[in-house]
Design a protein around this nucleic acid. Structure first.
Lengths: 215, 215
DNA sequence: CCGGAATGTTACCGATCGGTATCTAGTGAT
DNA sequence: ATCACTAGATACCGATCGGTAACATTCCGG
């Protein structure tokens, strides 16, 4: 087996630079390392070292690596909640606008983050059936889908549930495709396809910035 | 870390039962174990034992675990070629029929295989940048998309490339979603959504079996 | 029947895995 | 100054990782 990347762990150093307490530094390092190398590709030693502390202190805060994984997964869920709040703030009382905002936000993540969805990736790595992390992932994905469905309904979609499912498939697909074949592959057409699908469910296309309204 | 599944490795025993030469038994076991537990979740010892042989013989046929991984990846690509041949055989000289056949075939895999696409999963696990397996995965995914695009064009789609990309996103998304939230989630609507998208590109919907033609 | 190739067996290598014990050094509040 | 709590340091545990050396055995073609 060829050896893993050993180039400088930038994010980890950043985590160390912040003078937070060890617990915060540990979770920050775990976020960064799990994201970059995968859950099974990172050992607790590496996390502790990246956090500028040691394994003993890590185990005083987290009973096991699995605990740390759960922390990682839940954190990603909270991050997503923040993004939903952003979207709502940018288009208050405008479900259709929020829907398009969501698509654009998703597109941004697809192009900027080469590693794809951390939750979906974790589901691939957690092959041990019944692993507690799988429940966290499922709950998050279901919540995400239901939120999307609520938005579709509020925006007046003809079949909100079906539209939400279609958008979920497109988003998940774009993230995983971006990982396999890069930004020039099928994920490049994610926004165009998503907007076409949304429109086909009876939701009027959004006003493109810079283009005068047709009335 | 909780321990990995240790329930009987059925497929492995099957591989052992077939009286092929060690090499074939090894690749068969690797297929099965990599698929079920992920690449990083399986050691060479486990593969050798599942193949009814030992590590030494394994290393006489494969120089490293990475070599075995490449064998695994390439095998999946060949399997896919066979499926394309099936599709062509079932609807000869009927591009639109092959397109719908592809969607149905994909749906079958989505529901039957809980682990999703092995190539996409491998891309998640192979975090070491520049790993030779990543090239194999990319080549396969590109080939798959181009084949799909060719079919879309032959079927007379208005924008064949765009339709092919959309279908790729839907398929990839359905496979990864099925893994996170099961068959009752968004992937349940994969066929309906895909057929709607295909139709929206100007390709006539296929004749549903059991429904009389409208003329 | 013989000889070479393929396979099996066992033991080993250094490294890393997740996790723990022990002891010391620092810290802040009273 | 004291005391309890937090954190650092180091060594260790058994298990497993990918990979190899050496030798015994089996098998098959000539």
């Amino acid at each position: 087996m060829a050896k893993e990347n050993s180039k400088q762990e930038l994010g980890a150093l950043v985590a160390q630079a912040c003078v937070q307490r060890p617990r915060e530094r540990i979770v920050a390092s775990a976020q960064d390392l799990f994201h970059r190398h995968g859950i099974r590709g990172v050992g607790v030693d590496a996390i502790a070292e990246a956090a500028g502390t040691n394994k003993m202190t890590l185990y005083r805060h987290f009973g096991s690596k699995d605990d740390l994984i759960l922390e990682y997964l839940n954190y990603k869920g909270k991050k997503s909640d923040e993004i939903w709040a952003e979207i709502e703030g940018e288009s208050p009382n405008d479900p259709a606008g929020q829907l398009y905002g969501f698509v654009e936000k998703a597109a941004k993540f697809i192009t900027e983050d080469e590693r794809g969805c951390d939750l979906a990736n974790a589901a691939v790595e957690l092959t041990e059936q019944g692993h507690p992390g799988l429940r966290v992932i499922e709950e998050f994905k279901v919540r995400q889908r239901d939120r999307l469905a609520g938005l579709c309904q509020a925006a007046g979609a003809s079949q909100p549930g079906l539209l939400a499912d279609a958008l979920v498939l497109l988003i998940e697909g774009a993230r995983v495709s971006r990982r396999s074949v890069g930004t020039e592959g099928p994920s490049a057409n994610f926004v165009r396809t998503s907007e076409a699908v949304i429109a086909s469910f009876g939701i009027p296309p959004k006003d493109r910035p810079g283009r005068a309204p047709s009335v």
